[in-house]
Computed example of a mutant assay.
Amino acid sequence: MLVAQISDIHARPDLSSLQTLERAIGWLRTFRPDVLVITGDLVDDGWRQGYRLVAESLRSLDCPVHLLPGNGDDAQLMRSELAAVGTWINATGPMHFRTAVNSLTLLGVDVTVADQSYGDVLPHLPWLMNSLADVTAPSLLFMHQPPFSIGIGVLDQVGCSNGSALLSTLEAMDRLPLAILCGHVHRPAFGRLGIIPAQTCGSLCPPNPLLLEGRADLSVIDAPSFLVHEVSDGRLVSHVVSVPVPDSGA
């Protein structure tokens, strides 16, 4: 079972991130994952045409696509322009999703807070608890903002609040998710929430610098990237896939 995850496209009129998305989608068309999940921040500044262009690109895939909003998304525009691509539990309100693909349950929790960069999972724990109550197969939990510290102060300040309450809710379930898979920080990072593996996906826009422990703000050498998750026999292995940036002089 192969689950692709793309995050933080941040499409804008200069088309640079959309071109990166096209290269990623072209790779995925050949790779043929079983499902694609996009974990938020598709478009900058409510750019309606950007949502339409993202939808057009995603429709070229043969696999199901599921989407969460990020703090930079316009939820109403995203719903209307990507209605033919993604499906959500509710027609209004939080854009959660739940689906099963090849005996793997995928749950997306919309933890965004209106007009804020941080997220908060606390209001959505009743929905999550109810959605997990009958899940006995392996599951993956998707969010935009990560509920664990990645060690970069400016980004941890705008992570997902109430991670400890999320952990308590998950520990009360019969089976823990294989991982919590997020976006938002524009670089891949790998940690844990309790004993649950937790990861952030790289971005298709320029990655953020690695500002760990007061180190200098060095030039970013990372390429845009996304993740491919392989689930087999109830185990998860995640792979970073880099998207080369074309030579501007070509």
Rank of each mutant, 00 (worst) to 15 (best):
L28H: 06
L28G: 14
L28D: 13
L28W: 10
R29V: 13
R29K: 13
R29T: 13
T30K: 15
T30V: 15
T30W: 15
T30N: 15
F31R: 13
F31Y: 14
F31N: 12
F31H: 14
R32T: 12
R32C: 13
D34R: 05
D34L: 08
V35R: 02
V35M: 14
V35G: 01
V35Y: 01
L36F: 03
V37F: 03
V37R: 01
V37G: 06
V37K: 02
I38T: 06
I38W: 02
I38V: 10
I38N: 04
I38P: 02
T39V: 08
T39Y: 06
G40F: 04
D41R: 01
D41H: 13
D41G: 05
D41W: 07
L42N: 00
L42R: 04
V43F: 08
V43P: 01
V43T: 02
D44R: 13
D44Y: 09
D44C: 15
D45F: 14
D45H: 11
D45S: 10
D45V: 11
G46C: 01
G46I: 02
W47C: 00
W47Q: 07
W47V: 05
W47D: 00
R48I: 09
R48W: 09
Q49E: 11
Q49H: 14
Q49C: 14
Y51Q: 07
Y51K: 06
Y51S: 03
V54Q: 03
V54A: 08
V54S: 07
A55G: 09
A55T: 11
A55P: 05
A55N: 08
A55Y: 07
E56K: 11
E56T: 14
E56R: 14
S57T: 08
S57L: 11
S57M: 12
S57K: 03
S57P: 00
L58Y: 01
L58R: 04
L58D: 01
R59S: 11
R59A: 12
R59F: 01
R59W: 04
S60L: 11
S60Y: 08
L61W: 08
L61R: 01
D62N: 09
D62K: 04
D62I: 15
D62C: 06
C63E: 05
C63S: 02
C63H: 02
P64W: 07
P64K: 09
V65T: 15
H66K: 12
H66T: 06
H66L: 13
H66P: 10
H66G: 09
H66I: 08
L67N: 03
L67F: 05
L67M: 09
L67E: 03
L67V: 08
L67S: 09
L68Q: 00
L68N: 00
P69I: 02
P69F: 03
P69S: 10
G70L: 05
G70N: 00
G70R: 04
N71G: 03
N71F: 00
N71W: 10
N71E: 12
G72M: 00
G72S: 14
D73Y: 00
D73R: 07
D73W: 06
D73K: 04
D74C: 05
D74V: 05
D74G: 09
